[in-house]
C-alpha cells in the first residue's frame, strides 16, 4: 500500500514539476502576452495541483490534507482572477512598466 502511495506521489510530483517547466518555457518563448498567459495559467495551476495531489498521501490526515487543498484552491482562484485582469490589461495595452 505504502509503495503504491509512494509511486503515486513520485508520479504526481514529477508531472507537476514538468508542468512548471512547460509554463516557464511558454512564458519565455510564446510571442505575445495573451498566448503567454495561456501557457502560464494552464501550466502553473496544473503544476501546483499535481504537486498538491502528490503530497496528499505524505501529510497528516485530515488537517494537513485540508490545508493542502485549501492552498491549491486559493492559488487557483487568485490565478483565475488575476489572469482575467491581466488579459484585460493586455488587451487595453496598459502602460508599459
Amino acid at each position: 500500500m505504502s509503495i503504491a502511495l509512494g509511486l503515486f506521489t513520485i508520479f504526481a510530483v514529477v508531472a507537476g514539476a514538468f508542468f512548471f517547466l512547460a509554463g516557464t518555457v511558454g512564458l519565455l518563448r510564446f510571442p505575445d502576452p495573451l498566448t503567454r498567459l495561456h501557457a502560464l495559467t494552464k501550466a502553473d495551476n496544473l503544476g501546483l495541483g499535481l504537486v498538491v495531489i502528490g503530497l496528499l498521501p505524505q501529510v497528516a490526515w485530515p488537517l494537513g490534507a485540508i490545508k493542502l487543498i485549501a492552498i491549491w484552491l486559493i492559488v487557483l482562484f487568485a490565478a483565475t482572477t488575476v489572469s482575467q485582469l491581466m488579459a484585460r490589461a493586455a488587451r487595453d495595452g496598459g502602460p508599459p512598466v
Binding site: 485549501a70 486559493i74 482562484f77 487568485a78 482572477t81 482575467q84 485582469l85
Partner: peptide, 15 residues
Amino acid sequence: PDGALTLLAQVLPPF
C-alpha cells in the same frame, strides 16, 4: 470597481 476583484474580495476573506 471591478467584477473580478469584487469576487476575489468575497471569496478570499472567509478563508
